[in-house]
Structure formats: structure tokens, C-alpha cells
């Protein structure tokens, strides 16, 4: 499912003299520049700019109302489905302008997958049909391809062993934690470059939460992850980089600080960040 438009291949000869050129800092997988989101003219997120590093976990943290989820949903154009929603500024995926018209929202969403707060497997479909649904939406028909992708995605989501003998069972027969891992597998099967996760453990018990958190570290090599969480311990445990948002003037969320997770929690630059991560509010 590689798309040449999105994954520009390295031109031959670029790495001809590696000793002389210093290793380039890896290009961020997504870049946000002055991103604002408004609903019916009312701003919800204002002028947010930061980079999402490739093959890392980036956490969006902040109190409720700070626009974390709103910002996340602008990355795969989910706001297109909401009347009156307006996204401005620029968001790049690689070097493609997400809102630029050179990539359709449906193609974009197969490159930037999403996992939601509550597990939402399709209840009318079997486990197998759930995992392969994204591929079939994108026109993949060959059985061998589908089966291979399903197995690989389920292994990656640490669900293969418990479902490999009941792939035809309905998705609703799984536990909540398993359903969420099924949703992760479903998103992974399309082989996205970025996986957006909107508080993916907020409806799960501590054991299921721990399994998902462990999973994030294993998935990093495969996909860049952006996770929204209201749980600071979780952000500390799972993320490499952190963006802290706060509700600014006229209730719109603004970016306060963006830094490596260890720095943001250890020695933040902004006093408001320090107050928040030390639990003095929020």
C-alpha cells in the first residue's frame, strides 16, 4: 500500500558519500504550522505549530477543553464530517499538504489512521472482516493479501494468539481491551504512516490499559503515533515527545510547550507547564 505521492523514494545516488555529509536530522512525519480550528466561527484551537517526529510516540496533553482531541482530529480531516468546522493553517504529511487538494480525505485517512476513545469494532462483522475492512474500503480484493495483512496486523496488536482460531466470530464477543486492540489492528492493517489515538485507554480497566501502553512501544518501528491522553502518568510512560495545550483567551486551546517528554516533565520552560505536570491544576 505504499503510495509514491506520499512516500517519495530516495533518489539513487543521494547517499553516495555518507562520510562527508553529517547525518540529516530525520524529517518529521507531520508538520503543523499555525493550525487553528473553529466551529461555526467559534475558535477551539488557535495557532498551533509543532512537528511530529517519525517512529516516535507524541503525546498531546492538557486539561479538558484545551483542544487536544480537536487538534488530533484535524490531522486526518475528521472535521470534514462536521458541519461548520473550519481548519486553517497548514498541516503537512511528509511533503503533502493535508488540506491542499492533492490528496483526497479518504486516501489521507488510509495514511493517517485513527483509534477512538471507546472501542468501535463493527458489530455486524466478524473479527476477520473487521481487521480487513480498511483494506477492502481501499479496494483490496485478493484473499491472500487480505489474510496476510490480517495476520500481520493482529500479531502487531498482540491479539493474534487469542483470536487466530475464531476469526469468523463476531467482534462483539471480545472483551473491551481486546476490542480496542482489534481496532488498533484494523487501523494498522491499512499500513498507515501515522496512527492517531484519542484517549485509547480511557474506557479500559488497568490491566487492559497496561497491555495497550506496552503495545505502543512495540508499534513505534511500524508507525508514528500521536496519542491524546488526560493521564499524565500515561504520557510519561509511553511518549517520547509531548505537546502541552491549555485553554487560552476566548476558550480556544493553545500550545504552551512542546518538548521531549523527559524535559517537559522534568524541567519545563513554562511555569504553566510546571503547574500542570506537578498536579497544581487540571
Amino acid at each position: 500500500m505504499t503510495d509514491p505521492m506520499i512516500k517519495p523514494e530516495l533518489a539513487p545516488g543521494v547517499a553516495a558519500e555518507p562520510e562527508l555529509v553529517p547525518p540529516p536530522s530525520p524529517m518529521p512525519v507531520m508538520q503543523l504550522r499555525d493550525v487553528s480550528v473553529a466551529f461555526s466561527g467559534r475558535p477551539a484551537v488557535r495557532n498551533v505549530s509543532f512537528d511530529i517526529p517519525e517512529n516516535e510516540v507524541t503525546a498531546l496533553i492538557g486539561p479538558s477543553g484545551s483542544g487536544k482531541t480537536t487538534l488530533l482530529r484535524s490531522l486526518n480531516r475528521m472535521h470534514d464530517l462536521v458541519r461548520g468546522a473550519e481548519v486553517s493553517g497548514s498541516i503537512l504529511l511528509g511533503d503533502i499538504d493535508v488540506y491542499g487538494g492533492s490528496i483526497s480525505p479518504t486516501l489521507l485517512r488510509s495514511r493517517v489512521g485513527m483509534v477512538f476513545q471507546r472501542p468501535n469494532p463493527f458489530p455486524t462483522m466478524s473479527i476477520y472482516d473487521n481487521v480487513t475492512s480498511g483494506l477492502r474500503f481501499n479496494g483490496v480484493r485478493r484473499k491472500a493479501l487480505l489474510e496476510e495483512a490480517a495476520e500481520s496486523a493482529l500479531i502487531a496488536a498482540a491479539l493474534w494468539d487469542s483470536v487466530k482460531n475464531r476469526m469468523k466470530a463476531h467482534a462483539s464477543t471480545l472483551s473491551g481491551g481486546e476490542q480496542q486492540r482489534l481496532c488498533i489492528a484494523r487501523a494498522l492493517a491499512v499500513e498507515p504512516r501515522v496512527l492517531l489515538m484519542d484517549e485509547p485507554t480511557s474506557s479500559l480497566d488497568p490491566v487492559a490499559t497496561k497491555r495497550i501502553e506496552e503495545l505502543l512501544g512495540e508499534l513505534k518501528d511500524r508507525v508514528s503515533i500521536v496519542i491524546v491522553t488526560h493521564n499524565m502518568q500515561q504520557a510519561m510512560r509511553v511518549s517520547d515527545t509531548c505537546a502541552f495545550l491549555l485553554m487560552g483567551e476566548d476558550r480556544a486551546g493553545e500550545l504552551v510547550e512542546y518538548a521531549a517528554t523527559t524535559k517537559l516533565f522534568g524541567e519545563p520552560d513554562d511555569p504553566r507547564t510546571a503547574d500542570y505536570v506537578n498536579g497544581r491544576f487540571g
Binding site: L81, R109, S110, N120, P121, F122, S133
Partner: peptide, 19 residues
């Protein structure tokens, strides 16, 4: 969330309705 789940996988509007 069912509708959104399908859109998030890259489904078209017709696929969301039909599938």
C-alpha cells in the same frame, strides 16, 4: 462512532452507508 470508525479507515461516503 461506527460511522466515524469507517471514515477513519479511508471509506468513502457510499462505503460507509453500504458496509
Amino acid at each position: 462512532e461506527q460511522v466515524e470508525g469507517a471514515y477513519a479507515l479511508g471509506a468513502t461516503r457510499w462505503q460507509v452507508l453500504r458496509r
